[in-house]
Design a binder for these strands. Structure first.
Length: 469
RNA sequence: UCCGAAGUAGCUCAGUCGGUUAGAGCGGGUGGCUGUUAACCACUAGGUCGUAGGUUCGAAUCCUACCUUCGGAGCCA
């Protein structure tokens, strides 16, 4: 396989290889159509782009009758031949092969799970090992990669450092929901203390340990030395959530910037979203066209508006006023002090602003202890970025940099300050105003593709009772 | 976890006032036709109707439990 470099189908379809060149394509058969004139049209796909390329195999090939006419969806082939101008309609170029080698057959075509037809997404989840061969999951995969690369590029170009915060943590400080336990103890007969409790002193780490629910507290430590940092890695929540937008294992992006306030944070979020989505529209136009046509007709218009519109900024208090003035009926009321429901968020971004909006300064009682207390002591410097279509996509805040205020907030929320000793140290030694936000990566992919179930935008979804692949 | 809906051929579905041999499209096989486009035409194979009980002369259809999936809610990213 080394004697001749294979051509990516993407480079052929993009015109990077001149017609008439000898080429080689390696991929999998999508469909085969026979002509009794003694030729077969074989659509070959290699994942490099949305479209397959057409291979026009003639009966003059030695294995035409014996093998090529038996090709079915999913067979792996290596095609060598010439890139030619298509003699038919529907494609500009195609391949006239000098050889088509069948590398891997499909054992039982009738029961091969991937048929050249539309499958339900629920069914595709049951064959998660084969679903990347579909148009939909292939397109999602390229979009997901494009966004991930764009995120790293965005931060890298601005001098941020990617911090690999730990997956295993002994602190449940984040308080962001139930955690998965990490333990090497015998679950059936764990060692006990004299009081009868499980003796975690004898566990691997010598104390109770869990999978992380957020890298934020850890990344703040590096922010206080490296100035601009971010985490981008897996995150785990053991909540029994059975919805189309929750996973037990998902990826999260969390930047943190020093010498920055809430409006710097909003500006970063705006630049960030515009950057990664405008890059996507350029880089994966083929996949985005597919999503716009088959998944969500309004997708491209919405994304194009997002990357050009100026994000509005509105305080929570203003938002509540706007909600109280409308005649629109909501399922839930929106009194000052309560968290905004999804229906409220969508009304604000879709009807009031008709574009992206950052809502700031939420009541302190509905937000986390580490968010900076505002003048007046009723609100904190939190911000949620709301976008049409889904509502909240980013949540962030300026962090509380004053030790006395932070301590008071920890106590006020009924938390034990002791485990936060290292987090509190940051406020004792060279503390500076800083801010950051979190973006659920899968939700960003959902927004980019219009796919409405989060289980389609991650290769192997983990959710309650779902760990099969 | 709570509320609602659904499980029938390899896939997508139709079929329920209970009643002979459970149907279609796609996919597979065979043949025909065509520089074809998820081609088209003909023939053909393929189903313990989610699982376990129950009611009945008779259950895909009615009842109960369980399993699984989907949608909504809560939680949140």
């Amino acid at each position: 396989m080394r004697e001749m470099r294979a051509n990516k189908i993407s480079e052929l379809l993009e015109g990077k290889v001149p017609v008439g060149e000898a080429i080689r394509v390696q991929g999998w058969v999508r469909t085969r159509r026979d002509s009794k004139a003694g030729i077969s049209f074989i659509q070959v796909h290699d994942g490099s782009c949305f479209a397959p390329i057409q291979v026009v195999a003639s009966e003059s090939l030695a294995n035409y009758e014996s093998e090529l006419k038996r090709l079915t969806t999913g067979c792996a082939v290596i095609v060598e031949g010439t890139l030619i101008v298509s003699a038919g309609q529907g494609q500009s170029i195609e391949i006239e092969p000098t050889s088509v080698e069948v590398v891997g057959w499909v054992n039982d075509p009738e029961t091969y799970p991937m048929q050249p037809k539309r499958h339900s997404m629920e069914y595709l989840r049951e064959v998660a090992h084969l679903r990347p061969r579909t148009n939909l999951i292939g397109a999602v995969t390229r979009v997901r990669n494009s966004l991930a690369q764009a995120i790293h590029r965005f931060f890298h170009e601005r001098g941020f450092f990617w911090i690999h915060t730990p997956i295993i943590t002994a602190s449940d400080c984040e308080g962001a929901g139930d955690m998965f336990r990490v333990s090497t103890l015998d679950m059936v007969n764990p060692p006990r203390t004299e009081a009868g409790d499980v003796d975690f002193n004898q566990d691997f780490f010598g104390k109770e340990s869990h999978l992380t629910v957020s890298g934020q507290l850890n990344v703040e430590t590096y922010c206080m030395a490296m100035s601009q940092v971010y985490t981008f890695g897996p995150t785990f929540r053991a909540e029994n959530s059975n919805t189309r937008r929750h996973l037990a294992e998902f990826w999260m992006v969390e930047p943190e910037i020093a010498f920055a306030d809430l409006l710097d944070d909003v500006a970063l979020a705006e630049d960030f979203l515009k950057s990664i989505y405008s890059n996507l529209l350029n880089e994966r136009a083929d996949d985005m066209e597919f999503f716009n046509q088959h998944i969500d007709k309004g997708l491209l218009a919405r994304l194009e508006k997002l990357v050009t519109a100026k994000f509005e900024v509105m305080t929570y208090t203003e938002a509540i006023e706007r909600l109280s003035k409308t005649k629109k009926k909501f399922e839930f009321p929106a009194p000052w002090g309560a968290d905004l429901q999804s229906e409220h968020e969508r009304y604000l971004t879709e009807e009031v602003v008709q574009g992206p909006v950052a809502v700031t300064h939420y009541p302190k009682d509905i937000k986390a202890f580490y968010m900076r207390l505002d003048e007046g002591g009723k609100t904190v410097s939190a911000m949620d970025v709301l976008v049409p279509g889904i509502g909240e996509i980013i949540g962030g805040s300026q962090r509380e940099e004053r030790l006395d205020v932070l301590d008071a907030r920890i106590v006020e929320m009924g938390l034990d300050p002791a485990p936060y000793w290292w987090y509190r140290d940051l406020r004792r030694y060279g503390s500076v105003p800083h801010a950051g936000f979190g973006l659920g990566f899968e939700r960003a992919v959902m927004y980019a593709t219009g796919v409405d179930n989060i289980r389609e935008v991650i290769p192997f979804p983990r959710a309650p009772r779902q760990v099969g692949f």
